[in-house]
Design a protein around this nucleic acid. Structure first.
Lengths: 415, 415
DNA sequence: CCGCCTTATTTCACCAGTTAATATATGGCG
DNA sequence: CGCCATATATTAACTGGTGAAATAAGGCGG
């Protein structure tokens, strides 16, 4: 009953690719499996499974992983994706620092590097320099050959316009039309690049390995200094027509409300982003500016104070209310199975206040829809952005059922 | 760069079905075409086109539609979907009445019937009776054989939980878990049924034949007494996990704002739905209840009064502001190419106030995203819901590339 | 230790669908 | 009237998937 205007394109050996992708993905996510199980799980015939897995094995994408005896018959050979097939790097460019992590193909972390940035409005050039050196460092640190790196995923704190000429827009930190790919290339990074919005990479991380596992429809929310979201619809991150979708933070929640750093009024971000919450807290205490400390410390102090200070408790209560309303809107609009609350501020806030947030969401969403939605905390912690970024090259591999570097780059936005 | 968790299922002759669907859809939407053009447009080889079109012709789904000579060669034979292959009915169950329309396969209107309902909160039983007799009437009136009717699409003013046991929820008019399919069956309707939310059917109508044509990502907004929306992502109406997605009307736009008939506060619907707007107008004029007139008349009077009455102008100005903010949220979240404003109140309001609505949307959306979004009025008028409903059986036909009644019902939710 | 039994995997003959190349149809033109 | 250009149909080669049958690999009873 879908709408489907015309339809997509043609197909012949797309079929083979699709089945390769199907089998490879199953093996990737559902651990070692025998051919027999694969056949059952995918619906493909045993013959096809044998055929395709043989091919995948020849290309070293998968390996055997031991036997399992079955009551008195030939034991099944377990197959799995070979972690050593290649490596991937994930980069989290945040408003306060750059983190680079290196993983093997099955996402075992091999090395991590973190570089701070001049905090308030990091300039794109310096971020790029840090990223480039970070990549070199993690490769050196883990002692792998750069040639085994399938690609580098990058999560950035702004919207990413994909396409031939990739551009990053993050007006709140002063990034306008930043040609991030080109800048990284200029810094000597020659690996395939996969750049996406940080909230979206966090979302993919949680979907693959965290609180989103198993859901087909979910929204993963990122609350840090700013606010973002990744909307996963039917297993795929929703991007909209110019991949700017999911800009939840600058959604109006209080018409005519307080000014937001984006220039509009009443944006959700200005009420539930850490910056906005702390501003409200300061105001409630009579405007004393908290000196010197960074946002995360201040935020922790606010949470800490809730037990003793009425002002702090009130600010947090209000925040839970606003956040719940924002989540309620997501529930109404997207009807997800699950909403995952992430980001450093979101996780900190949720630890204590998740029930209040849930309650508020319930009050602001249609009951019938809300009752079918679970609201949970992220499981990957603040590393989710980098992990999710690193999954981007892996996703390309799984989608093509083959190494994205060699397979004629079809749809992957590797650059 | 999609997220894709595992993937979907297998494929063999799905391929053929896909290509049948592809060709049939192209012919349906892009008028008569020669095999040659089809080949070019779909990327399929001439051989395949010949092969598949021969099959479709044998099944009478398509016919030849004249020749076109080409500079000195064999003239091309134009093919098109045969309008006489079958008929479809579209039903619009509104809060104030039931409309039933009958079309041929290419959506030429053959008959229309309209029955009023006891206005305030129509009871499901009486609506169903009207629908059943309406269907009988349009079939009789147009003199066609019921056996040629491929199906009946129904747009309802509430959320529709698809599935084996279809349920309609419309708490604002007192419908709870209404088993609409069963009720219609009990009234003697034995045709295949396709039931969906009215905003979604309107959306599909506008996408196919109205202001949405050609867009892959669009949101079609319905503003009548209540407020709804259809979100089209990549050509498909987005449904979420329990097909309740797109409930834009009960999205919070004024945190802690006025009470809404849904029980929450600050819902968009209570600010821009006709009922809410008229309530504000009444209040502005000191609470005089407008006697006896129906909502549409009152709303027209309000628009009329704008020239002379300051109160009226102010109410409309505010409405445009709220609506723009709501649209801005859609822009930020969905990043569509186009937003289409529909519904009787939306169309009436937009005629004069579209610029104001656009302005407000621009103030509330991220500039960069907003600049890539067109905001337009619907082109199908208030018939859009019924037209869109009637497209549901057609969509099933195009999706399967075959008559949904005979083709083993795979995914279509025909019941 | 041998042959039987069970279950997993591979092999093989066959089918469906696509494509490129080739053949045929159709009308204009010299 | 035969040639040319163009559109459509037909055909042979190839790819990929499937079910049935064959083969592999242990366990087990004797």
């Amino acid at each position: 009953m879908g709408t489907r205007m015309p339809a997509k394109r043609t197909t012949v050996r797309d079929l083979r690719r699709h089945n390769r992708s199907l089998l490879l993905s199953k093996l990737y996510f559902d651990g070692p499996l025998s051919r027999h199980e694969l056949s059952g799980l995918t619906g493909l015939s045993a013959a096809t499974v044998s055929n395709v897995t043989a091919e995948l094995g020849e290309e070293r994408l998968i390996t055997e992983a031991g036997l399992v005896e079955s009551d008195g018959g030939r034991p099944r050979v377990l197959l799995r994706v070979d972690p050593a097939y290649g490596h991937v790097a994930g980069v989290d460019i945040g408003e306060t620092g750059v983190k680079v992590e290196l993983f093997d193909l099955t996402m075992n972390r091999l090395a991590t590097v973190e570089h701070p940035l001049a905090s308030p409005r990091p300039n794109a050039g310096s971020a790029v320099t840090q990223v480039a050196s970070g990549i070199r460092e993690v490769i050196a640190e883990s002692g792998i050959d750069e040639a085994t790196v399938l690609g580098v995923g990058v999560g950035v704190p702004g919207t990413v316009e994909q396409g031939e000429a990739l551009r990053v827009h993050a007006p709140t930190i002063g990034w306008e039309e930043v040609p991030l790919t080109d800048l990284l290339r200029a810094e000597g990074v020659s690996l395939p690049l996969f750049i996406d919005n940080g909230a979206k990479t966090q979302g993919q991380g949680e979907m693959w390995f965290g609180a989103g596992r198993g859901a087909r429809h979910a929204v993963i929310v990122l609350i840090g200094s700013g606010v973002g979201a990744a909307v996963v619809t039917d297993g795929t991150t929703y991007r909209g027509s110019t991949s700017s979708a999911g800009e939840w933070g600058h959604t109006t929640i209080v018409y005519g409300g307080q000014e937001c750093r984006c220039g509009s009024r009443g944006c959700l971000e200005s009420y539930v982003g850490a910056e906005g919450v702390l501003a409200r807290y300061r105001k409630a205490r009579g405007g004393k500016p908290a000196a010197g400390e960074d946002e995360q410390t201040q935020f922790a102090a606010l949470l800490e104070a809730a037990g003793k200070s009425k002002a702090a408790a009130k600010v947090l209560e209000e925040t839970a209310g606003y956040l719940g309303a924002g989540i309620g809107n997501l529930v109404n609009l997207f009807n997800p199975e699950r909403i995952v609350l992430g980001g450093w501020a979101g996780l900190a806030l949720g630890e204590e206040h998740l029930p209040a947030i849930r309650r508020s969401a319930g009050e602001h969403a249609l009951k019938h829809v809300f009752d079918q939605t679970a609201i949970e905390l992220g499981q990957l912690g603040p590393d989710a952005v980098a992990i999710g970024a690193a999954t981007l090259p892996v996703a390309a591999l799984l989608e093509q059922g083959a190494d994205p570097r060699t397979a004629g780059s079809k749809r992957g936005t590797a650059a």
